[in-house]
């Protein structure tokens, strides 16, 4: 008790690195809270899974910045982000005007900070979507090669073997050519 062992900052660093243990721990500790809250507020368990996972991705994105420090506990953050995401979703579906109840987020530290985080997250999502669209147009073998390296985290060694290059260096050269093609496509798409 005297020295808090489960430092939240350590947990965040592990989360940022995509470590499964930390992610499982956070899931275990906090998912049921959001699930319970959402069911009381007219959502389903399926909604809760989507919502919680989106909030985890927001936190994951924030935690990528090494200087990022939470001003509240991880649980509070996830809960507040989930609430904001949910109300945003309701507002967009035009069911009825929805007002944030006064306990959505924290009055003191302002729901604005959470909104900012969500906006950054949504911009990034849009950016990634464009990138995926460009990747789909880049043609083979580039599409598969880039996906294998960046999305599936395969080594150049494995990729060389899978794609039939004589050695990893050849595969690397091909990867750089592919990146150049992707850049052209991506920035032309953005310019439109």
């Amino acid at each position: 008790m005297h020295s808090p062992l489960n430092s939240e900052q350590q947990l965040l660093a592990a989360l940022a690195a995509g470590q499964r243990g930390a992610t499982e721990q956070l899931y275990q500790q906090h998912y049921h809270v959001i699930n319970g809250w959402l069911i009381k507020n007219g959502g389903s368990s399926v909604d809760a899974a989507d919502l919680f996972q989106e909030a985890m991705v927001v936190l994951f994105g924030k935690a990528q910045d090494k200087d990022f420090r939470l001003t509240c506990s991880i649980g509070t953050y996830l809960f507040a982000i989930s609430k904001h995401l949910w109300y945003k979703k309701l507002q967009r579906s035009h069911r009825e005007p929805v007002y944030l109840p006064d306990n959505a987020g924290d009055e003191d530290e302002g729901g604005i900070a959470y909104d900012d985080d969500i906006n950054v997250h949504e911009e990034r999502e849009a950016h990634y979507e464009q990138l995926d669209a460009a990747l789909d147009q880049v043609g083979e073998p580039c599409r598969s090669l880039l996906k294998a390296y960046y999305h599936h985290d395969k080594s150049m060694q494995d990729i060389a073997a899978d794609f039939g290059y004589t050695n990893p260096d050849n595969a690397k050269t091909q990867k750089y050519k592919c990146l150049a093609r992707l850049r052209k496509l991506f920035y032309t798409m953005q310019a439109k």
Binding site: G18, T23, M56, V57, F60, G61, Q64, R124, Y128, L131, D132, L135, L146, Y149, Y150, H151, H152, D153, L179, L182
Partner: peptide, 10 residues
């Protein structure tokens, strides 16, 4: 591209 990949794995 790397960030997108990392997030997809997450």
């Amino acid at each position: 591209v790397a960030g997108n990949g990392k997030q997809k794995r997450f």
